[in-house]
Amino acid sequence: MHEQMLDEPWGVSPSVAFRPEPFGALAYHFGNRKLTFLKRPEMVRLVQHLAETDTVRSALQDIGIPAESHNAYVGALRGLATIDIIRPRGEVSE
C-alpha cells in the first residue's frame, strides 16, 4: 500500500497554495476548502520536491529523510492525497 506510492510520480494539485510558517507551511485547497498544516519544514520540502522527481522514494532520499522515518512521511503523503493536496503526477496538470 505505502510501498506502491513510493515508486510512483506525484505532485502538488494545481488547486493548492502554500503559505510559509515558522513550523512549516499552511496548505490551502481552493476546491475543497481544506486547510492543512504541514508541521515540519522537511514535510514542506518533500511535498514541493515531489514534482521534481520521478518517484516518492527519490524525493524522500533527496530531501534526506532517514529511512526509519519513511513510513511516517509516506503516511502523511497519503493523508494529503486523500484531500487532493497532492495527486499522482499524471493528474496534476489537469
Binding site: R33, K34, F37, K39, R40, S69, N71, Y73, L80
Partner: peptide, 30 residues
C-alpha cells in the same frame, strides 16, 4: 508477524507531520 516493514521506526507519527483543519467550521468568516 515477522515483517520488517513493521517498525524499526522512529517515533515520528503522521500526526507530527500534518494536521487537517476544515475551515467550514469557521462560520461567517467570509
Amino acid at each position: 508477524m515477522n515483517e520488517d516493514i513493521k517498525n524499526e521506526q522512529s517515533d515520528l507519527l503522521v500526526e507530527d507531520l500534518i494536521e487537517e483543519v476544515s475551515i467550514d467550521g469557521m462560520c461567517g468568516v467570509y
